[in-house]
């Protein structure tokens, strides 16, 4: 069964590079530009993994994680967030909101897949 991954980031290049990497790894990728946009992909579809940026114009990553965790069908879906080395305090905040893990930017494709491998199979 092909896994559906939702990538949420306001940067098109990040969306592209994540999308490209994951599609090549056999995932089916949906992309949203921010938390608000991302929600439309969650309804009526089975998303197996959410990868979200934290800083986004409309509804930031932390809020999105909270929203997803409140949805009955997604209360246990793995959520990874994108963060940078310098933002350690954000890590805790996101974890508290219900995130499963994180990916440190910048990353290479192998690193991304490694993190994903920790949360879905």
């Amino acid at each position: 069964m092909q896994k559906n991954v939702l990538i949420v980031d306001d940067s098109e290049s990040i969306r592209e590079v994540v999308g490209f990497t994951l599609e090549n790894a056999g995932f089916n990728v949906f992309a949203g530009v921010d938390g608000k946009d991302a929600q439309k992909f969650l309804d009526g579809r089975r998303i197996d993994l959410v990868i979200t940026d934290l800083h986004m114009p409309e509804m930031n990553g932390i809020e999105l994680i909270k929203v997803i965790r409140r949805m009955a069908t997604y209360s246990n879906v793995p959520i990874l967030f994108l963060t940078t080395e310098s933002q350690v305090e954000k890590k805790m905040e996101a974890k508290d909101a219900g995130a499963t893990g994180w990916i440190i930017k910048p990353f290479v494709p192998a690193k991304l897949l490694e993190a994903i491998n920790k949360v879905i199979r």
């Binding site: 246990n76 793995p78 959520i79 499963t100 949360v119």
Partner: peptide
């Protein structure tokens, strides 16, 4: 497992 972690994968 509440936050989507599956310990078996680890």
């Amino acid at each position: 497992m509440n936050n989507g972690t599956n310990p078996l994968y680890l």
